[in-house]
């Protein structure tokens, strides 16, 4: 791009008046702002861990992952690697195997997520074709070592057990919503 391109409009910064040029207004504005905050403002710090951050919408929150289970308690994941493909942080590591169940073909033998690498973007959840992986509302992850923060299949499944009541799977939510609607909707005879 050339600087004398006719399509470029040069925008001038606003001109300062005498007061502005003398630096006095800036001096006073800056000082009053800081002093005002120093003495007269309420502190916003939330003192974790005594005070807890409130998750407003656990279903939408992007925290620690969980691996969902189906009705028979088996891992829902079909080891398609789509989450690993979508993951921008390359933190999902799957080893697939033919499944031991007659109605399923493939399942993950190993499913590791490196929670330290994860950026909690939720792409894995979006990519999954069978709603097997989801992000829960757990947000305070701690561990004593890096290895501990690599969550394996068992750990991810146990997160599901802990959160399934509070944060049902999307299909269950949709199902419940449909049930509710059925209950409340007037029967066709009433509408007349």
């Amino acid at each position: 791009m050339k600087t004398d391109d006719a399509r470029i409009r040069w925008v001038e910064s606003p001109k300062l008046g005498m007061l502005g040029k003398s630096y006095l207004t800036l001096f006073i504005k800056g000082l009053t702002t800081t002093l005002g905050h120093l003495f007269f403002h309420k502190k916003v710090t939330l003192e974790s861990p005594e005070q807890r951050h409130k998750v407003l919408d656990p279903v939408n929150y992007r925290g620690v992952h969980r691996l969902n289970k189906d009705e028979q308690g088996r891992v829902k994941c079909v080891a398609c690697f789509l989450c690993a493909t979508a993951c921008p942080a390359h933190c999902i590591d799957i080893v697939a195997e033919p499944s031991p169940w007659p109605d399923r073909e493939k399942y993950p033998k190993v499913f590791n997520i490196d929670e330290l690498r994860c950026i909690f973007c939720g792409m894995c959840e979006q990519a999954c074709p069978v709603e097997a992986i989801e992000l829960t509302s757990f947000y305070d992850l701690t561990g004593a070592s890096r290895e501990e923060m690599i969550f394996d299949k068992e750990k991810l499944l146990s997160v599901f057990d802990q959160t399934k009541e509070r944060e049902p799977m999307p299909s269950k939510r949709a199902n419940d919503a449909a049930q509710d609607r059925l209950k409340t909707c007037p029967t066709s005879g009433d509408s007349s």
Partner: peptide, 9 residues
Amino acid sequence: FLYQQRVWF
């Protein structure tokens, strides 16, 4: 090769 790796990787 069964289930060893996805081809795009």
